[in-house]
Design a protein around this nucleic acid. Sequence first.
DNA 1: AATACAAATAATGAATGCAAAATAGCTTCT
DNA 2: AGAAGCTATTTTGCATTCATTATTTGTATT
Lengths: 250, 250
Amino acid sequence: MKSAIPETGVPITQPAAGNGSDRQEASLHGEVLLRLRDYVVEGNIPEGARVPERQLCEMLGISRTPLREALKVLAAEGLIELLPNRGARVRQLSQRDLEELFDVMAGLESLAGRLACELITDEEIAAIERLHYEMYGHYLHRDMHGYFQINQQIHESIVAAARNETLKTTYANFAGRIRRVRYSANFARKRQRWGEAMREHEAILDALRRRAASELSDILFQHLRNKRSAAIDHLAEGQDTGLETTPQGD
Amino acid sequence: MKSAIPETGVPITQPAAGNGSDRQEASLHGEVLLRLRDYVVEGNIPEGARVPERQLCEMLGISRTPLREALKVLAAEGLIELLPNRGARVRQLSQRDLEELFDVMAGLESLAGRLACELITDEEIAAIERLHYEMYGHYLHRDMHGYFQINQQIHESIVAAARNETLKTTYANFAGRIRRVRYSANFARKRQRWGEAMREHEAILDALRRRAASELSDILFQHLRNKRSAAIDHLAEGQDTGLETTPQGD
DNA sequence: AATACAAATAATGAATGCAAAATAGCTTCT
DNA sequence: AGAAGCTATTTTGCATTCATTATTTGTATT
């Protein structure tokens, strides 16, 4: 058998030349790290599958040294795991792993809400309100995809309003780990749960307007907890196929 | 000038032989990573100072390849930073960085408390109570060091009671980043603040006994927030000397 | 004497090379 | 035919080497 990795190979020719998002890294290993991380997060390699060094080197047009450095970092981030003398594999998340990840995400968002209450401006709240109503529109039209997009933006806005770069980075890290599952989980959302989620979002907005830190913290945690349940349930159902059926549109 | 790094060099002769704590890593790079992390966390290299590859290679008795892999990981963890073509430096934390780190730690402990309320056993609570009274004894005897030790144990017990390995790992990561400062901050604790901290701990224990998740979450966050203030104030005072005077007993 | 310039030296970043381990393939034996 | 054992190939882990960039040292000039 060849390998399950699609050949999206675009060699790194111009290190850190204006390639879309302005991620800083000028060094080769930095470039490799960013590209590999995306590559894995986007689900280009099946869960549990080997991450073949040689093939990736060819794909990226580099030697093994910077690639291996990047792999070590990805392993530290929890995206892959390194088996001694047996190479790297895409980390397979057990149900328990997912529960833990969702809970930590819930804790981080809960913290973000708490901190946001301290310094958030009326303008920022207004912007979130606009997003909220936009999302409500998608809800009414039963447009799951649009809803999901705005939903993400709202949560990211709250994290941004916390004015804590460390928190933001950590949040992004965990978000990457569960991205595929999360997407899948949102599609699994039952109609009833969807309505609940909308109500929770209204409560979030309300608490935010009143800068009620503790209260917002509680609501956000519960909100994420409920998402967790939906996601876990969904996965438990489709356990056999695992994540391979996860939509990867974007 | 030679270098500011003390020669604690003990070459890695027996990879993962029973060297105290049972840290798994069998590979060389893993060994190096663990040792280097401790080396940096324990403050053997002054803040902002270069991390000389060659010297560390000699000290550890390895080549540059595994060392550089470890450096990449430490950079990802936030302990050091890599300047392009200019090597690694021990990350110097600005006051803002510290504020952010303390807040994230506060959020994580707050989360830990919330989760702990769900499944903590009476035995675990009893164990924390014992620690609490032991700590109270240190408080009465004005034994700052003993107090600090037990204090750490209590917070770690709460994190452990959350039954979330991901959280535990993340918590440990952040704890490592601010370890030196934290130690210093505890010594800076004024008598009045010390009394407050004891009362807060009593409230923590009370909420834990009642499994009052939201309440415990709030108390823990506030508790850590107050620690943050003490630490930041302390650092602001001794800004000139920086952290070099930090006691490093253990 | 101080500054600017230039060569020498050392450090970094990445590629290559080599030994050990794992996997695959083949043969042999029951 | 199937299992067990042995060899060949591949892959991994680390050391070494090479090119490039920074830093230091020395020299000349104002």
